[in-house]
């Protein structure tokens, strides 16, 4: 049995490198029938905003070749509801419960992060400056290094625990974005959020999604994600969390080899609700088979 522990810094230590991606795992409780969710390295709960959001109209989902588009639009009941109603139910889950914080203005991000900062059992936030499904803000914060720096710095001032920043792949230079948020005080970065795409129904001549465009995820985005994790991990000092189309342990190992210290599993949870646990076991087997003592040996071990 190899050592699966990963230290992402600033108080965020994972029992293993496998976390579940925001928006794909609810608040964890939805999956408790299928696996021991406390075995996960972390659970990144549904994107939380300052105010209640109803999200986008139906239809919000389209299956595409080896992937899916979603346009949920950050439906959530707002941070106060989270603090009062959801947090008490999840705070004793024996893993890292991380809150994905989203917003449409710097003030919103700051106010939300400040409220989450008060919650003892939340060791980290994942700052979502990359959601493609909200009309204002969201992704715009993640496509301009200057704006990204501004929002991350502002949140840094009010948030004292581990600050992970989630990056969008919908940019010209992912390294410029990563360097900007690192400079602004991010303790880690996670990438990639979904790729913006669309689906059309030729029969009706209409878009499939109510919002026309949406975020693409699943196995089809993995090559793009691997490339970006590899590029970013080469230039950053802080740890990189890799995600994008991870369906099994081999995919997760590939992200670690590319330079990620930990991974997030997203779309795969929809197909196999016990996949997180299987990936943890599979990484351990890979380490044993390759005579490695610690999962940290895999990070960036790509032979080029």
């Amino acid at each position: 049995m190899a050592d699966l522990k990963v230290d992402l810094g600033k108080g965020l230590t994972l029992s293993n490198p496998v976390m579940t991606a925001s928006g794909t795992f609810g608040y964890g409780t939805e999956y408790a029938d299928f696996m021991d969710i406390s075995r996960l390295g972390g659970i990144i709960v549904k994107g939380t905003t300052l105010h209640h959001r109803e999200g986008n109209p139906y239809p919000r989902m389209a299956e595409t070749p080896s992937g899916m588009l979603n346009a949920v639009g950050l439906q959530n009941k707002g941070v106060d509801y989270f603090v009062e109603k959801i947090y008490p139910d999840i705070k004793d889950t024996a893993t890292n419960m991380i809150v994905n914080v989203s917003g449409s203005s710097v003030e919103d991000y700051v106010a939300t992060a400040a409220k989450i900062n008060e919650l003892d059992s939340i060791p980290a936030i994942e700052l979502n400056i990359s959601c493609p499904n909200v009309k204002q803000g969201g992704m715009t914060f993640g496509t301009d290094p200057k704006v990204a720096k501004e929002v991350v710095s502002a949140v840094r001032n009010v948030y004292s625990k581990h600050l992970m920043v989630k990056l969008t792949p919908n940019v010209t230079s992912i390294t410029d974005m990563a360097l900007a948020v690192e400079e602004a005080g991010a303790d880690s970065v996670s990438l990639i959020n979904t790729l913006m795409g669309m689906a059309i129904d030729a029969r009706t001549r209409r878009p499939v999604l109510s919002t026309v465009t949406g975020g693409l995820s699943g196995p089809c985005v993995k090559p793009v994600a691997l490339r970006m994790v590899w590029q970013v991990s080469k230039v950053l000092s802080v740890p990189v969390v890799g995600l994008g189309g991870i369906m099994n342990a081999t995919d997760a190992v590939e992200f670690l080899l590319a330079g990620a210290s930990a991974v997030e599993v997203g779309t795969a949870n929809f197909i196999n609700p016990a996949v997180g646990e299987e990936i943890i076991c599979g990484i351990n087997e890979y380490l044993d088979q390759n005579g490695m003592n610690s999962v940290t040996e895999l990070t960036g071990a790509l032979i080029v």
């Binding site: 999956y31 109803e54 139906y58 439906q75 949870n269």
Partner: peptide
């Protein structure tokens, strides 16, 4: 039978606009 992804209430893709807001058809 709104189009679904997860089926267990996590992804919020299959919502119906109801008198109680967007409700998950699956859950």
């Amino acid at each position: 039978e709104n189009r679904m992804a997860c089926g267990i209430g996590a992804c919020l893709c299959c919502v119906e606009d109801t008198r109680n807001g967007h409700q998950r058809v699956c859950a």
